[in-house]
Design a protein around this nucleic acid. Structure first.
Lengths: 366, 366
DNA sequence: TTGTATGCGTTATCAC
DNA sequence: GTGATAACGCATACAA
């Protein structure tokens, strides 16, 4: 039978105390294995534990937190959870948080600014002791974050470089990644390479482009400007699929020859592959494609996508560790210099790239 | 300068009261727009609001909840967040929760039983007022849920039928879905259809199989037993990719002819496509493939996967609405009969299926 | 070893 | 119109 019940009219410490015949303090001490419980008679302990168990006692987190002045909670604010990019990140975060007493509260801003702000507010009111922000994509401006977070709550952003707002950031080394992607294609013999850059205002995109150019310069490769275009800025990571399709069609329409396309990310690469397919060009036989990120599905499409991997799990773990550390040392954050944490990217070779020229129509089935 | 500070030594109501020169009661009343605030002088209100603002006052959710006896919180317990299946579900949940005052607390059990139990416990201690469980996959046994949840916290499971544990459940009509998939293939002229069933202990799998058989019976189609196999049970939804590859190879090895494969879900379909590709058979020209779920990536692979769509967004919305309703009416749950809520599946035609026989080597580029 | 008393920050009930 | 004050459930310093 439902009790007359507001949302929680549960059994309290007092109830357990009365039922067991001991005082609330004893019960509290025992149930928490507090230092003083060393002096409590074993029989008493057992008795208390048992009755608590039987009555279905669950300590009230609110009362406890109020009293202890800590929430045992870490906020995980995700800009857009539908981006597969962030799932592994979440896993990394969870993994390093699980052995801890902290409960991660994951919430998703659904790529909307108002929602982001509101939830941030709510997290603050819930007194999260630390904050991991998964900022894969999103609007450029994140004032609310820099304002609030940096002052009181240890905060680390992963996926974007927000050190300018003096927020600790964990990102992949995009420059290196761009370099590696280019290097891979070049090593396979590709010389006519189309490049599909990310949106202009994304820092990631710029850095990758720098890496691409650096490699090109080093080997004296000319990048054909008509085979270089840029995604429109967009709120939605998934939109880069459409962008990939569209811009690839543009490349094809130039009539210029190209044997490989370097795509901004895996989504874009997927779009590229679609467009190529529609145009009757096969991947990788007629054109190699390389992506970036290594989102989970990159490995299970056909052909599998060669890509530059971001160590997302590790990035999540690192970010979490940083938050945990910051929480322990109440100094005002780490010294200004090393706010940026850069992780190495890694080339993952799959089936979407191959050596050029490949003459036989259908590549050998392996 | 960091205050000497435990995690939160923030400005309290009392601080605001002192600073503004009013009592805590007045401040509280004003800041909450409580009924009584009607009688507070406008000037006072403004003053209070302003000082609160200036001091950066944020009410302490713990104290408030303790006092109000409600948490304004809904738990969203996800079995495995890495399953793309659940992302849209989450979106649906968020959408119907956002206009509400409730904060969704999403947590991921990472497909681990102990983690599931522990987090469930934590959610209870945090006095969530309702619980949405996203049970895409996972271990068969979920005692902890039925024990705890049903008694006190309004709970709805989405993605699995747990009505046997007398928990409200929202699921897609799997039987109908299986039927529709088969019907689609049949309508395209396929008669030699391989079926790749889901793991035995999954109810979903059984229901879909029933639908498949029902259609086959209706049109008098014989299903070749050697072209029917079943995925091994597995904890990991992603593993069905490997299963798809393996079992498809099995089909090929039989030497039997088949012009289409009906896969248990989209992941499996991806595996099927990979295996077919490796064997030199093209999709859809040489073999059609149909999946189930319509996970986001089904639309952006090449070819796009024809599939049976689960209306996940709507399922999430419905589940949330049900929880909200149950929270409002403290009767002990809805009448036993209508615990199960079934949503209609929907055929989504893309490029992985086509009419048989298709003779020309490469299908017309559209 | 165990019990009593106090306060964490809010809200709500009263009195002024 | 506004201000004291008593809970909410728990943990702890202090008494016993």
């Amino acid at each position: 039978m439902a009790k007359k019940t507001s949302p929680f009219k549960r059994v309290t410490l007092l109830d357990v105390a009365r039922a067991s015949g001991f005082s609330t303090s004893s019960v509290s001490i025992v149930l928490n294995d507090a230092p003083l419980s060393r002096y409590v008679a074993l029989k008493t302990k057992d008795h208390i534990r048992k009755t608590a168990q039987e009555m279905g006692y669950h300590p009230d987190a609110f009362a406890r937190s109020l009293r202890r002045r800590r929430s045992d909670t870490i906020g995980v604010l995700v800009f857009d959870i539908s981006d597969p990019f962030c799932i592994s990140l979440l896993r990394g975060i969870e993994h390093t948080l699980y052995p801890t007493a902290y409960l991660p509260i994951i919430i998703d801003a659904d790529n909307r600014r108002d929602q982001f702000e509101r939830y941030l507010e709510m997290l603050i009111e819930r007194r999260v002791e630390g904050l991991v922000v998964v900022a894969n994509w999103l609007f450029a401006d994140i004032d609310p974050l820099s304002k609030v977070a940096n002052s009181v709550i240890p905060t680390v952003v992963v996926g974007r470089d927000l050190t300018q707002n003096s927020i600790q950031s964990v990102v992949v080394n995009n420059e290196e990644g761009g370099y590696a992607a280019m290097q891979h294609l070049y090593a396979l013999g590709h010389r006519q390479i189309a490049v599909l850059r990310g949106p202009e205002e994304m820092n990631d995109s710029t850095r990758r482009w720098e890496g691409i150019q650096r490699f090109a310069a080093e080997v004296g490769l000319q990048l054909e400007p008509r085979l270089t275009s840029q995604l429109l800025s967009a709120m939605d990571p998934n939109s880069s699929f459409d962008g990939g399709v569209r811009l690839t069609n543009g490349f094809i329409e130039t009539g210029l020859k190209f044997s490989a396309i370097l795509a901004f990310d895996d989504y874009t690469a997927l779009g590229v592959m679609r467009a190529l397919w529609k145009a009757g060009r096969r991947v990788p036989e007629d054109c190699s494609v390389i992506g970036f990120d290594d989102i989970p599905l990159a490995g299970i499409t056909t052909p599998g996508i060669t890509t530059i991997r971001q160590p997302m799990m590790d990035m999540g773990k690192l970010a979490t560790r940083l938050v945990l550390e910051a929480m322990e040392s109440p100094k005002d954050g780490p010294v200004g210099s090393n706010l940026l944490h850069t992780m190495p990217p890694e080339l993952v070779e799959r089936d979407s790239t191959q050596r050029v020229p490949a003459k036989g129509r259908r590549a050998a089935v392996r």
